[in-house]
């Protein structure tokens, strides 16, 4: 039914558009791109406003890759060690922030020991934000240095992975706040990241998931297990690593939304704070924007065909 209505509406729109293009071919042919920008603005702003007001989200169904991420984390037991590598920045926060939030929430709920790390200079800030937003207010029983810690940023990109995969203390003598590693209880016995039960990487580009796979998982396939979340443009690049090096992957806000729905359905309860529903909420603007893109592509083709017909005639 929904399909029929959509097809009908699209057909109607196409007919209308064809008439409009015929009537004002020149305008459409040289369409100022700012009109498109304006349409996109409306397509994103309206759902943001409506969802903000009504707090309603679209239903989400988890696809295998997100389900696999969820399953891998679910398999861990209380006290297992997880390295959360946050390799993103404010620019990609819109796309990756919600999954980072859900990862931290999921790990904290399962009482896993969390080791945060960043290969991007600003990743450190993203970690601090995450701790301030999730762990401190909602898991006050968690103690820094015992249940979670921040290794912070180290320059050197994949070189850092290359070193810490066999010897963490060569690069990290203190945590992000200058505390001696030896004084941090949860660092006891951790001589390399092979001691982690899982690596979770949130990646916006280079260095990111690809480097973690190449320099950590590939050389130590039996010791290091990893799941990741990444931006939409990066995702196709990582598919070849699934499932062997990378059992699961969250691709962009869609993947985040699927994973978030799994986590929140299992652990969230009814009165869950809005900050844990961000990914699902962001699917609204994404839907409208994608529909607009489809319509724009239709429109572009109508202009193309009307013009071609005219040229053929003349």
């Amino acid at each position: 039914m929904a399909l029929l209505i959509t097809l009908g509406a699209t057909a109607g729109f196409l007919v209308l558009l064809t008439f409009a293009v015929r009537a004002r071919t020149e305008f459409f042919k040289n369409l100022d791109r700012r009109w498109i920008f304006l349409l996109m603005l409306v397509a994103v702003a309206v759902p943001v406003y409506v969802i903000g007001k009504t707090k309603e989200t679209f239903p989400e169904k988890a696809l295998p890759k997100a389900q696999a991420v969820f399953d891998v984390i679910e398999e861990l037991n209380e006290g297992d060690k997880v390295l959360l590598a946050f390799d993103f920045d404010p620019g990609s926060e819109g796309e990756l922030g919600p999954m980072a939030t859900t990862f931290a929430y999921h790990c904290a709920t399962k009482k896993l020991k969390m080791y945060f790390i960043a290969l991007w200079p600003i990743g450190r800030q993203m970690i601090d934000d995450n701790i301030a937003k999730i762990i401190e207010p909602d898991f006050p029983e968690m103690v820094y240095g015992v249940d979670y810690m921040n290794l912070g940023f180290k320059a050197g990109n994949e070189g850092v992975i290359n070193v810490i995969v066999t010897d963490i203390k060569q690069l990290y003598t203190t945590d992000a706040y200058g505390t001696d590693i030896a004084a941090i209880p949860m660092m006891e016995g951790i001589d390399s990241i092979q001691k982690m039960d899982l690596i979770i990487n949130v990646s916006a580009g280079y260095p990111g998931t690809k480097e973690w796979v190449q320099y950590a998982v590939t050389p130590f396939p039996h010791d290091i297990r990893m799941v990741a979340g990444c931006t939409g443009v990066q995702a196709p690049l990582l598919y070849p690593y699934i499932p062997q090096q990378l059992p699961g992957l969250l691709a962009a806000i869609k993947g985040a939304s699927e994973y978030e729905s799994l986590v929140i359905n299992k652990y969230g309860g009814d009165d869950i704070s809005g900050k844990y529903l961000e990914a699902q909420r962001r699917m609204g603007p994404q839907l409208v924007a994608h529909v607009l893109m489809v319509l724009l592509i239709f429109a572009g083709n109508i202009i193309f065909f009307v013009e071609r017909k005219r040229e053929a005639r003349s």
Binding site: P64, Q67, A68, D71, V72, E75, P243, Q244, P247, G248
Partner: peptide
Amino acid sequence: RDLEPHRTLF
């Protein structure tokens, strides 16, 4: 096991 989908890995 590797030739099958990833879920069976776990």
